[in-house]
């Protein structure tokens, strides 16, 4: 049987992602095995934490080439939070770390143009924010532009190719990449599994778009 694999690279809590899959009738298994990833029907790349550690864990588990090969094969990948950031070319977290380089752009620390006005805005940002759609996709079906989603992050991704941007949100005066889509790659900076019904709808949409399971 073909399965959706939730990639476990020892960062963060994957149980809530698995639970969201269950309620959306997506058969998913948590795994860090190359073999599982290579023959997966679709991949979810979740996680919270630091970019550098995430890349080094993926490298230790020998998963970097598997994930890149998987994406090249045209099968769907869904990145969440640090899983969105890892898709980018590089991150400035603790010096410069190279990412999976599947999406052109850079991951940078949240900072404000007008620091005086936004000095009481915390980093990390933990909380709900409005997400505005910037492009059309069936992945946003039955969700409205301006709906709220739950974020936890200190870094954000800056895209090079604006057509990759699906949705964004404003934190202070900073426009944050909230969701991206490029061919078979979809990723959100927010946690759809922690964003109530709007978030679960995103899982449903992903399942429907790719006829999963």
């Amino acid at each position: 049987m073909r399965e959706v694999i939730i990639v476990d690279f020892n960062l963060g809590n994957l149980h809530s992602v698995k639970k969201a899959c269950e309620v959306c009738n997506i058969k998913a298994k948590i795994s860090s095995q190359r073999g599982d990833i290579e023959k997966a029907e679709a991949l979810i790349l979740p996680g919270v934490g630091a970019f550098g550690e995430a890349m080094s864990n993926l490298s230790k588990l020998n998963l970097i080439d598997s994930i890149k090969g998987f994406v090249d094969s045209g099968r769907p990948l869904f990145g969440i939070c640090i899983g969105l950031q890892l898709l980018f070319s590089e991150s400035s977290e603790f010096g410069l770390t190279k990412g999976l380089d599947l999406i052109s752009g850079k991951v940078e620390k949240i900072s404000f143009e007008n620091q005086e006005i936004y000095k009481n805005f915390r980093i990390p940002f933990i909380g709900w924010n409005k997400v505005e759609f910037k492009n059309k996709s069936t992945l946003l079906d039955h969700v409205e532009s301006g709906n709220y989603f739950y974020f936890v992050h200190s870094y954000y991704a800056r895209l090079e190719i604006s057509s990759d941007l699906l949705a964004s949100s404003m934190y202070g005066d900073l426009q944050v990449t909230a969701a991206i889509e490029r061919n078979n790659i979809f990723a959100t900076q927010f946690h759809p599994e922690k964003s109530g019904n709007s978030g679960l709808q995103i899982y449903h949409n992903w399942k429907n778009k790719y006829n999963l399971n």
């Binding site: 006005i117 936004y118 915390r122 909380g127 924010n129 404003m170 202070g172």
Partner: peptide
């Protein structure tokens, strides 16, 4: 404009 933007998201 600024005053609205300068409000950070709060949680209950």
């Amino acid at each position: 404009m600024t005053s609205i933007l300068a409000k950070k998201p709060l949680r209950i």
